[in-house]
Design a protein around this nucleic acid. Sequence first.
DNA 1: CTTCTAATAT
DNA 2: TATATTAGAA
Length: 353
Amino acid sequence: MGEEVKMSEFEVNGGDDEATATANTAFVDDEDDVDQRVLEWEIGLPDCDDLTPLSQSLIPPELVSAFSISPEPRRTALDVNRASHDTLSSLRSSGTHLFTNNSNKTSNNNNLHSFNDPMVVEPEGDGSGSGSGSEPKKMRKTDSGIAEEADSAVRTTENSEDPSARALKRPRLVWTPQLHKRFVDVVAHLGIKNAVPKTIMQLMNVEGLTRENVASHLQKYRIYLKRMQGLSNEGPSASDQLFASTPVPQSLRESGSGGGGGGGGGGSGLVGGSANGNGHVGMPIPMPYGAPLVPVAMPMYGHMGMHQGGYHHQQNGYEANSYGMQPRDWPRGNKYGSLMSYHNYMAPNDKLN
DNA sequence: CTTCTAATAT
DNA sequence: TATATTAGAA
């Protein structure tokens, strides 16, 4: 008996100090001009579910900068887009925030940069802020490394200067399976009753996620659940690839009070134990997520076609930062919280295999 | 103020 | 289509 190296299927957060997380933030905001961005993604990627270590970037941004091998100027989203199919890896390692600029209606420069300094942990959340008001200010530590441009707040008013370029609108958020999975997990743990946008957003700990994002998605998700319940238990419905590809924890099945039982659990990545079949949740349960997720550009083909009753493999659309970054301020009594602190993101041979 | 729902806009 | 945004009610 003894302990073995049990790896959580999820990404792990590196509890190290000098871990600077430079995440690739990417959203796809575009709808009509998606023609030339048909780059071929590595379709043979490890599918799904919990692609663990494989999803790690080739080279951690810190290393990149540490080695000064990043003379590469900041390329615009367009550039990156174009070259993405060529040097996708490069893109990843460079940690460039990628946004597809949508120059259709409001011509706004998406300077939306996400914060990336994990070092700063806000022990005192101070209730006032909490999302809508003011996001946690990220002080950029001019430490060695990441000589990239400084990141500014996503949309907070902490910027002392630079009044111009203010009305920055964030691009559409793309709910990729990974992101959705996180969402589902959180909802499952909270229980359908306690799953409200704000809480979900906080628990998900996804950078850049707003309450509205979650609310919107939650709406759709609820409808999906309802629909599922109404129908007999059917396999994967051809509707909603996203939802269909994510196992819906039975915990979410309950509607109202009392009810149900359930048992099993989503089974995908839930931390055993916290399954609250019935009864009440009581308080927000800290999720195992130690690292924020970052959306990555994922070209969606106009017509993907729906696969009927089939499990199709999806590419990983999100990467988790395994860099030291602790969630907001979880109750110190959490068992999961900082349980994991081993990072092994060094996967030199990603696709080289 | 936050959330819910529905409707609407992009 | 998938999200975002809004409106009005709770």
